[in-house]
């Protein structure tokens, strides 16, 4: 699914990622943990194709593509999804219109016919149940006036609709109360299949109690310094990051 080899990336001349190696197969959930400033969000953004970051070395294969050669929209259409840490507001653009456009862009890319408004509404309703999303939010402008929790839930809802092959959840748990956290985790668990994979970027172990990872990686100063199973997250919770430095 995804193979990152010796990836280096910089922003404004400062190297943030200093040789990341990571292989993710379909059906797996990988957690990436690490202290502030270790490069977790940078990794997520580089994979999604954010332009501010300069790739200074290494390679990334996604499915059969050289990921770094694709523009951000084509990465998305190939099935890479980023659940943003800070989802932006798009005033005046309704959530449902936005999402229908995104959905159809992906279909067009795959050579499929665009879906009409009525069919899309049916699809949305089905996915809304999954995330316990309030219908009223669908007709509101994208993220405008949403609470922090609603924004995060909206990210997972979009993920449910777009059905990505690889989803990157960038600190989706931050700003969520425990009930919302459970709903989000539940949604992810229901969407999980042998055909898709997840990268869960988080500070804390608490999300990983609900989304059980197959692998946990610790990112520190732009490198993966330790990898292990789900028990590694528990160790980190107890001991902190200092013992790894």
């Amino acid at each position: 699914m995804l193979e990152i080899k010796n990836l280096h990336a910089a922003i404004e001349g400062n190297e943030i990622l200093k040789g990341i190696n990571l292989k993710i197969n379909a059906g797996e959930i990988h957690a990436i943990m690490g202290p502030n400033g270790s490069g977790k969000s940078t990794l997520a953004n580089v994979l999604a194709g954010r332009e501010e970051y300069e790739i200074t070395g290494g390679s990334v294969r996604f499915k059969d593509n050289d990921l770094l050669e694709l523009n951000p929209e084509d990465r998305a259409r190939e099935g890479l999804f980023l659940a943003f840490q800070y989802p932006v507001e798009i005033p005046g653009v309704s959530n449902s219109y936005f999402l229908k456009t995104a959905y159809n862009e992906k279909r067009k890319y795959q050579g499929m016919e665009e879906i009409d408004a009525a069919d899309f509404l049916m699809l949305m309703k089905e996915k809304m149940k999954l995330i316990e999303m309030d219908q009223a939010l669908m007709n509101r402008p994208v993220n405008e006036g949403f609470s922090g929790g609603e924004k995060k839930r909206n990210e997972i809802f979009q993920m449910a609709v777009l059905e990505p092959k690889l989803a990157i959840l960038d600190e989706t748990d931050s700003g969520l109360d425990i009930d919302a956290l459970k709903i989000v985790a539940n949604g992810v668990n229901k969407l999980r299949s042998k055909d898709n994979a997840y990268i869960v970027v988080t500070h804390y172990q608490r999300l990983l109690a609900y989304i059980i990872p197959d692998f946990v990686h610790v990112l520190y100063k732009g490198k993966i310094v330790k990898s292990g199973g789900k028990e590694l997250a528990l160790d980190l919770e107890k001991k902190g990051y200092d013992w790894l430095k």
């Binding site: 998305a76 989802p87 862009e105 890319y109």
Partner: peptide, 17 residues
């Protein structure tokens, strides 16, 4: 904002759209 455009890009929508 660049972040608005990137957000839509990340959902498969081209920059012009």
């Amino acid at each position: 904002g660049d972040d608005q455009i990137f957000y839509l890009n990340q959902r498969g929508i081209s920059t012009e759209d």
